[in-house]
């Protein structure tokens, strides 16, 4: 396995050397592997487990210009009780909102605000001039610090794709390091940092692999595919590729990094494919909230419909789950 340089040892040159030395990606082979894993047939007891696991891994998201405190409180209510008709339904992992809505979300969660691995619900905030990332570093840091101060448990930052595509990997790296530092709280703990690569703008798989390693080297706790504002958002091959990077990072460092596909995953069937890809690439110990998330909004209701079908034996209707 390749040796991993420490953050403090890296320079622009050594970072570039490291990223250029990564093995290439053959797009056809990668997509074929993802498609093959997508043919796994998950039935009966496995499906029931998968459905509850998907719910537990969802970052229930609202990221609209029109978001209001009322909208956010509704989202929190849905996160806590996804299906009022079946209170055995698990809660989601987190709600994901813009930074100015963090306080509202924290307040609405009340006692249930906390670590999703302990059955509670986290608050994730998008930051760093989401979704474009086009602002100064000072603003990105301020954006992050405000969200953390307001009680965000997780920061979903965007990388500077312009810098990445122009070959200025060092700037991208330094910004992640800086934002990671901005995630630090007064008590020395820090908010979990999810690094959004915006793979739809990086376009090539080779870029995605480089960006994944860059984000891990810079201290990201999670690597995340997309903002959801750019098409294509999450795809199965891109997620597989990022999981391979995470797997190799773990083999080299013993450190587990999380992966979050976000945007475009709308059906239970699709989400189950992601679970299979996780389980068969990095192992099913990754299928816990601090190592895998779905960034999604409409996915939850489809999963609830499938859950009702499994419980009752007949097909349900959209009228039997709440809109939000």
């Amino acid at each position: 396995m390749r040796s991993i340089p420490a953050v403090s040892d890296l320079t622009a040159e050594s970072l570039a050397d490291f990223l250029r030395a990564l093995p290439g990606v053959d797009a056809v082979g990668l997509e074929a592997r993802a498609a093959d894993l997508g043919t796994r047939s998950i039935k009966t007891s496995s499906k029931a487990w998968a459905i509850d696991t998907i719910i537990k891994l969802i970052d229930l998201t609202t990221l609209e210009g029109a978001d209001t405190p009322g909208k956010v409180r509704t989202l929190v209510a849905k996160a806590l009780v996804p299906d009022a008709g079946d209170l055995s339904t698990p809660t989601v992992a987190a709600v994901c909102v813009y930074g100015d809505m963090v306080a509202t979300a924290v307040e609405a969660l009340g006692d249930m605000h906390g670590d999703p691995d302990q059955g509670k619900v986290s608050v994730a905030a998008v930051a760093t001039a989401f979704p474009s990332g086009r602002s100064s570093l000072a603003i990105k840091i301020a954006d992050t610090q405000e969200a953390v101060a307001a009680g965000a448990d997780e920061i979903d930052m965007v990388i500077d794709r312009g810098a990445f595509l122009s070959g200025d990997w060092w700037t991208v790296f330094q910004q992640i390091v800086a934002v990671k530092e901005a995630c630090r709280r007064a008590d020395g703990t820090h908010a979990h940092l999810k690094v959004i690569l915006e793979t739809g703008e990086l376009v090539t798989y080779d870029n995605v692999r480089k960006a994944s390693w860059l984000a891990m080297l810079a201290g990201g706790d999670f690597i995340k595919t997309s903002t959801g504002k750019v098409a294509p958002a999450a795809t199965l091959p891109v997620t597989l590729l990022m999981l391979e990077a995470v797997r190799d990072w773990y083999a080299a460092t013993g450190q587990r990094i999380g992966v979050k596909p976000a945007g475009g995953i709308k059906t239970t069937k699709d989400a189950i494919k992601y679970l299979v890809v996780v389980a068969e690439t990095v192992g099913e110990e990754w299928l816990v909230p601090h190592l895998f998330r779905f960034g999604a909004s409409s996915l939850l209701n489809d999963v609830l419909l499938q859950r009702q079908k499994l419980a009752s034996g007949h097909y349900s209707s959209a009228d039997y789950v709440t809109l939000d």
Binding site: S41, I42, K47, W49, A50, L275, A279, E280, E284
Partner: peptide
């Protein structure tokens, strides 16, 4: 249970 012990799908 282990997820990867996929239930039979004959």
């Amino acid at each position: 249970m282990s997820f990867m012990d996929y239930a039979p799908a004959p």
